[in-house]
Design a binder for these strands. Sequence first.
DNA 1: TAGATTGTTAATCGATTAACAATC
DNA 2: TAGATTGTTAATCGATTAACAATC
Lengths: 197, 197
Amino acid sequence: MIQNCKTKKVYERLPMYLDYLNKIDRESVSSTIIANNLNLGEVQVRKDLALVSGKGRPKIGYLRKNLIKDISKFMGFDQKHKAIIIGYGKLGRALYNFKGFENFGIEIVAAFDINNKDVLDINHLCEYCSGNDIKFGIITVPNESAQSVADKLIQCGIKGIWNFSSIRLQVPNEIIVQNENLATSFSVLIKETEDRQ
Amino acid sequence: MIQNCKTKKVYERLPMYLDYLNKIDRESVSSTIIANNLNLGEVQVRKDLALVSGKGRPKIGYLRKNLIKDISKFMGFDQKHKAIIIGYGKLGRALYNFKGFENFGIEIVAAFDINNKDVLDINHLCEYCSGNDIKFGIITVPNESAQSVADKLIQCGIKGIWNFSSIRLQVPNEIIVQNENLATSFSVLIKETEDRQ
DNA sequence: TAGATTGTTAATCGATTAACAATC
DNA sequence: TAGATTGTTAATCGATTAACAATC
């Protein structure tokens, strides 16, 4: 029944640090430099980094390579995470071909739908999941089918669901759901923009 | 320079209430009922609703129709918000055809890219924006071009940017950026799922 | 009336920021 | 040494939750 509203904010910032660290060309880097580049507070950066590493040195800062390794390890990016997509419409297709997951150990290994020769049929879902040790499912089906797809994924042993439908899924306690409600995100942008005018 | 990390959480819940209210078939509804259905606290629901409406009545609850009207008005969903997409790759295409925006007054009126006959050319961006009173831009170009596209959008009078690149955009203070970093979202799901095991 | 429900004030919790000693 | 920088403790801020009086 957990809908992770209370995503720990650190977990969102660590990948940002990683992105930045992978991009720059220096041996060492200070919290101030990172903070300035990402528009964050330097103390916050330091605290975040202490959580995963704690190997900074006064006057010098952090060794870039260590930091990359430590963040990757903490977040689990050093391991392969296999995911499948259910629903091969336009959005499903876009995610299936999305390039940005590589640095995070994420691999989308298959897509499922009904009556679509290009991808696997949803009837073979469980078979595929158990045979390939799949832990993550991405739901990109229409709202009407979202809950039943979620139920099925859980039956098949999925542990984490990335939910692009606008339905709040009912799931058992041990399953993690990350809701990615695009309409909501956009409407927050609209509200904040109007507030500012 | 504002990257709205501190999205007010209420702004994310109000659209959820709206979704739910549009779905149910009752005259009136209590905070308890809403809370149970959306897995939230009832006090939280009541507080959120007080912010936009404050017309609940003891013993009865809230009139569904009033609530819908009040939330819509507060969030600005009663007005039309025109947006354009820059970058007509797979993701841009998916968003361009996304059905879920309708209830929020959001309309994606055009897409732009370079050397693509199916959509408008980016050279005509400003022309189009000023001629059609466009306030919102959606960036779905590769990382390398994201900042330059943002700059251009701002030149053309855009007030809010929905950024699907993984770059942190540098923008003036009065511009609102909503970052939608898909890889980050997914990696948070992975981390939280692993934590739970 | 009794009970369901709202709305509000106070308490709690968590996350961010400020202050500052420790270190190289 | 002086200055840059870390790491940590305390203070602040904001959001959530608990408690409870007011209302129909």
